[in-house]
Write a protein that binds this DNA or RNA. Structure first.
Lengths: 297, 297
DNA sequence: GCCATTACCTGACTAGAGTCAGAGAATGGA
DNA sequence: TCCATTCTCTGACTCTAGTCAGGTAATGGC
């Protein structure tokens, strides 16, 4: 990696942790420990399961429990067992909790204002644009890619979203029964694999890869959640699938797609795929692509 | 202030404190409290006075003292009284301290690397550029501007640098005795004022303003430290001086400058000053500028 | 119905970060 | 020379943040 780049990142880290980090804690934690403030924020308007909070904040279960007791004692939250599974408990904000949360939001605004305040208009615009870029790219960098079983809850979530979106976008709607969708077995070792992209632990994208011996690998059911589009997640998924296909001894990957998915088609072109004649009779496909890759095994 | 801007800044703060802040502490503090790590970093290669460390890090004197004892016990630093003023003590890194500091640096590199690692080349370039911009502008926003007495140590420091730089840049060198430099009294209330720009408590720029009744206000001895040029400090100083001149009932500010100071001349042009005929016989001046401002008092 | 597992809670800790009130030495100005 | 001030240090605190080792109730597969 480029030393000058590393250096710039380090300077950025120092400036930002000093300026933002310190202020952040100061503003937020004025009359409440930051731990609790973060918790209050993370609970959100509709409430959250305790396990989810723990996961999101990466904290010890005992620790979260204790903080919840404290918030409860202050009358800011209520904690109740879920009706379906009484082991799991759900935290909800009370009215007082909502008020407190609004106060924290106000502080957060103050802080943001204090960063912009000394700058002139042109500088503000540039700072905000640069922050948006950093935000976007750092978020992109936290997306993780894992091969999961297609029956894993996160995988199923993605597949449901995938089908839902096709139903909406295809001119003719989408009926899974009519499509050449692979069954789960085909996307599971040794016949293939299923990749799930996650951001902060939540599934935000997926793609399946069929690895039939002797013929090209095939990408199926690729999907990226609308709110993370533009972060390069699809590109990363493609690159990862190509690498895995190569590891399994394939030197060509191919895929089919529907003409309604214009953004996907543009992506395939820009990632080095070329359009080829139909290699299957998928009723929902209008375009077929393939890409030659460097075989590895 | 624009709500959309505030919002973007808040998102940035959240992403960055989570991603950078947390990691930062984790990496750095692996076998040493972050307080001490920061201290070790701030001491630097040539050593520092204790009071300076305290100032820079904004910490309680007792707290710093205790940390220094701990670093001393580990053989990483030595603390000795200054020869000139034995109340002040100077901290210096030992060889072991230097080694430890290098380790911390290495960690910092690792962290920077880990932020870039998941991204592709184009994304890395963009992230680094955006970080540089944020860094630059946040730094610019922390520069403070205060009116000080021209005899204040920070003011004197700036004036020494100012004279030194002119000596270097003017074709003919610079001899203060030959110049029409105002004496300190002229840059002190009620005859004028002296502005010092500081970054993290260190003086990084200055300018004097003469406020003679009935005639235009005059800007003298404007200087910005080389390492903060490009942050818009000079522009901020000018704006502040104009505002103060207006408050004192002036509607014109003027200044003279030497042809060697091309960057300054460009600045005056871009800030709305226009070149006028010589209004004094300053031997070192080649250009004279003035700007009409909105009178306020 | 049994038993491993899961989700949460409690109690007992540790360590880091920071504050506050003095004490003592050195300095500088009247 | 005296006295207020400056600079640093020490001791005695407080408060968060976080860890670890059980313990209890609910759940789900056999």
């Amino acid at each position: 990696m480029d030393a000058a780049q590393i250096n710039q990142v380090r300077r950025f880290n120092r400036t930002v942790t000093e300026r933002v980090g310190v202020l952040h804690d100061h503003y937020l934690g004025r009359d409440r420990p930051i731990g609790e403030a973060r918790l209050l924020w993370e609970i959100g308007e509709q409430g959250q399961d305790v396990r989810r909070l723990r996961e999101r904040l990466g904290l010890d279960s005992g620790y979260v429990s204790r903080m919840l007791r404290s918030l409860e004692a202050d009358g800011l939250v209520t904690v109740e067992p879920q009706p379906r599974d009484k082991r799991v408990r759900t935290v909800r904000l009370t009215d007082a909790g909502r008020t407190e949360r609004a106060v924290l939001n106000g502080r957060s605004d103050e802080l943001a204002g204090s960063l912009l305040e000394p700058l002139n208009t042109a500088q503000r615009t540039r700072l905000v644009a640069a922050m948006a870029e950093v935000d976007r790219l750092l978020t992109a960098a936290t997306v993780t890619l894992d091969a999961l079983d297609p029956d894993h809850p996160d995988a199923r979530h993605c597949l449901r979203c995938y089908a839902g979106e096709l139903q909406e976008r295809f001119e003719t709607g989408f009926d899974p029964a009519r499509s050449l969708l692979p069954d789960a077995g085909e996307l599971r070792s040794p016949h293939g694999l299923f990749l799930v992209a996650r951001l902060h632990g939540e599934p935000v994208g997926c793609a399946g890869l069929k690895l039939p011996p002797g013929v090209p690998a095939e990408i199926k059911r690729m999907w990226v959640a609308p709110h993370v589009r533009g972060l390069g997640v699809a590109r990363r998924i493609l690159a990862e699938l190509e690498a895995r296909a190569a590891q399994h001894g394939h030197d060509v990957v191919r895929l089919d797609t529907n003409r309604a998915l214009t953004d996907a088609i543009a992506l395939y072109h820009s990632c080095g795929f070329s359009e080829v004649a139909a290699f299957n009779d998928e009723p929902y496909a209008h375009h077929w692509f393939e890409k030659r890759i460097a075989k590895q095994a």
